[in-house]
Nucleic acid binder design. Structure first.
Length: 114
RNA sequence: CAAGUUUGCCAGGUGGUUGCGGUCUGCUUACGAGCAGGUUGAGGAAAGUCCGCCCUCCACAGGGUACGGUGCUGGAUAACGUCCAGGCGGAGUGAUCCGACGGCAUAGUGCAACAGAGAGUAGAUUGCAGUUGAUUAUUCAACUGUGAGGGUGAAACGGUGGUGUAAGAGACCACCAGCGUCGGCAGUGAUGUCGGCGGCUAGGCAAACCCCACCGGGAGCAAGGCAAAGCAGAUGCAAUGAGGCGACCCGUCUCGCAUCGGGUAUGCUGCAUGAUGCGUGGCGUAAGUCACGUACCAGAUAGAUAACCACCCAAGACAGAAGGCGGCUUAUCGGUAAACUUGGAUA
RNA sequence: CGGGGUAUGGCGCAGCCCGGUAGCGCGCUUGCAUGGGGUGCAAGAGGCCCUCAGUUCAAAUCUGAGUACCCCGA
């Protein structure tokens, strides 16, 4: 995922937390807000409660891969933050990908024809 | 062959497709960046943050006290609580391993619940023995001697055998253990060993205060430096003051400082050529060190190693750099090399 | 990334510096008092002192290693 598509400022995370629309899933939580840009930006939060650094990195990489592959099929112009929950640690890639896709479907971000 | 000890090394591999961080070259450019190709991209513990150091700021890092740390000897090192070699003590048949291992005979202070007669310049309940008196056919009482036996405790002031005695005791003797002191020899030293003399016995705890020797100024890369952006002041104290200084005093420097409130939290740098890795040789028992040659080997900043497929095998554990380095400690599926020990078998 | 702190009955805390007896408040149980409840009075139960080693005769306390939680720093 290119640097341009990443959510990087602490301000942006705070804004999503204050004003964003939030959707829950057993494996993760998704937060959404329009950003007035022609493209989406994504942020992934892996809390220290998930485990050690290896577990956090592994979980974040799987989610990032899922988002990367789904990116072209999404409506653009939103900031998206995905917060991982404890249950998502150790899950295989297929499960993570399906969870991310379901979340995008529920917030109506997937383009109709895809 | 089996069991074991020590010291090292490795930490899934190969190929394909799609992706990510750094860097180099070329091209494009709206100067924000983009595209193409090459190259490179986590560990033995990257971890815990338990020590040490480099580095940075605090004054140029000063003096004393306090406080803290280390603690057999010699060496290695930038330094260490680390490492190497040796000594002593302990464990093991052995290779080997373990040890906060200075000093309660260098001074002083303190502690030991309960039990027990007595717990520190020991003590006398029971016991043993003698004398006297009562009673009488074996007991009782008083006084004196005694510390061997029983008993308590984590711990009770040498052990064994004898002499001796009313009963006993280092009271005396022999041997053994242990202590002090003087001297010889070996060793740089810790220490070992041999001999003489002394008094016959000196208890434990210093990860109790403490004494001795040595070491330590404080804080930390969110340190610190440069640039940019932004905001709003108020109150209190004050030159016999306040701060640097966050243990205290001296000394020294600066002129403001504290509290509440408000603003910012971006970019560059520090930041990777170093006590660096590898190879060869010299010196050293070794830890190491010196010389020469050679290599450049992660550098992110919401934080780069991933996803999918195929094949192979012994079926993949613990685990992810965040300024750097030397150690220690903790986690860990396994594989492998060398040396050595013990037992068995064969020649 | 760096610095600091805490862990003791169900809950909130003492005790640790200077080692031998674990204590306080609330809560809980039982009894009394009341027609019943609350309040009150009396009695009682409940803790291998976060875990594992070491020092010591003896460790909640001293020392080392680990675990969990909390706070602070541009």
């Amino acid at each position: 995922m290119r640097k341009q598509l990443r959510l990087r400022r602490a301000k942006d995370f705070a804004r999503l937390r204050q004003q964003g629309q939030t959707i829950r899933h057993p494996l993760m939580i998704l937060s959404l807000l329009p950003n007035d840009l022609p493209y989406n930006r994504y942020g992934i939060i892996t809390s220290k409660r998930l485990g050690n650094a290896v577990k956090r990195n592994r979980t974040r990489r799987l989610i990032r891969e899922a988002v990367r592959l789904l990116h072209d099929g999404l409506k653009q112009g939103y900031d998206v933050v995905i917060i991982t929950r404890h249950e998502s640690v150790g899950k295989p890639y297929k499960v993570i990908q399906e969870a991310v896709y379901q979340l995008f479907l529920r917030v109506n971000l997937v383009k109709e024809n895809k």
